[in-house]
Design a protein around this nucleic acid. Structure first.
Lengths: 129, 129
DNA sequence: TATTATTATATGACTGTGACATATAGCAGA
DNA sequence: TCTGCTATATGTCACAGTCATATAATAATA
């Protein structure tokens, strides 16, 4: 229902890959573990990784298979690291934008009301911004 | 190029309308003045307002004309205020999500690098969340 | 007077990201 | 054998945004 966290998946993936090459499914798990992003759609994740590879942010290779099905292992490129740094700066700006909104909100409504969503909102809507 | 601030326009409009009824063009100006959102597309604004009216968050009426062209004046409904409160809560959660990302980023890259975008990024990309 | 700018609302065409569903395959264990 | 987990992938759809364009009333300027 509520809008998703648009464009946040890519910087999250870049950040995780900055700590070392990984395959898609592993990235999915870490997104949840580290609570960077909740309930990421698997299909969307793989498609995003391929898109990022097309854009030159990451590169992939099939792993020398260990156990289980084959894994496509992604690693960050220099271009990808550059993008990550710019994302980080942009996200900082976004934080200040959100702060300005919240300040204004509290100015109008005082301290009440802002804490409704955890109870009153469904799971979809919790997944905003 | 970079992703826009998806779904942030609606709560901004609700917040501005919480301070009193206004018409679309006025809202556009205030978004810029108060720097809640920069460079909002006019077409998108009007379509968003109509969508919000369809969803029952706002109501509109043609103004008893003063000067200039007719104005469609919007006002917040009780449902809209409820939505605004939930948005505010959701946006607070989003802030903490962004903080977690930025903390992790600084953990990996130290204090350098994060401040690239203001110079190195084009205007489009500055508009990220 | 004619022309341009500002205010104000609106639609058409297109794009990117995400949501949901579905397909596939290898392997482990009941 | 059947179920479940790991792992990758595609198809279809919806939504909010971008860019372009249309319209009209009024104010300012040449």
């Amino acid at each position: 229902m509520g809008p998703p966290i648009w464009g946040f998946l890519q910087p999250c993936l870049l950040l995780l890959l900055a700590e070392g090459p990984q395959h898609g499914y592993s990235l999915l798990e870490k997104l949840n573990e580290q609570k960077l992003l909740n309930g990421v759609d698997v299909g969307n994740l793989y498609r995003t990784l391929r898109r990022m590879e097309g854009a030159g942010m990451v590169e992939s290779a099939w792993s020398e298979r260990g156990a289980g099905p084959n894994k496509r292992v992604y690693r960050l490129t220099p271009d990808g690291e550059g993008m990550l740094r710019r994302w980080a700066g942009a996200l900082e700006q976004r934080t200040s934008l959100l702060s300005r909104f919240l300040d204004e909100f509290h100015r109008v409504y005082g301290l009440d009301g802002a804490l409704a969503p955890p109870e009153g909102m469904n799971e979809d809507e919790e997944n905003l911004i």
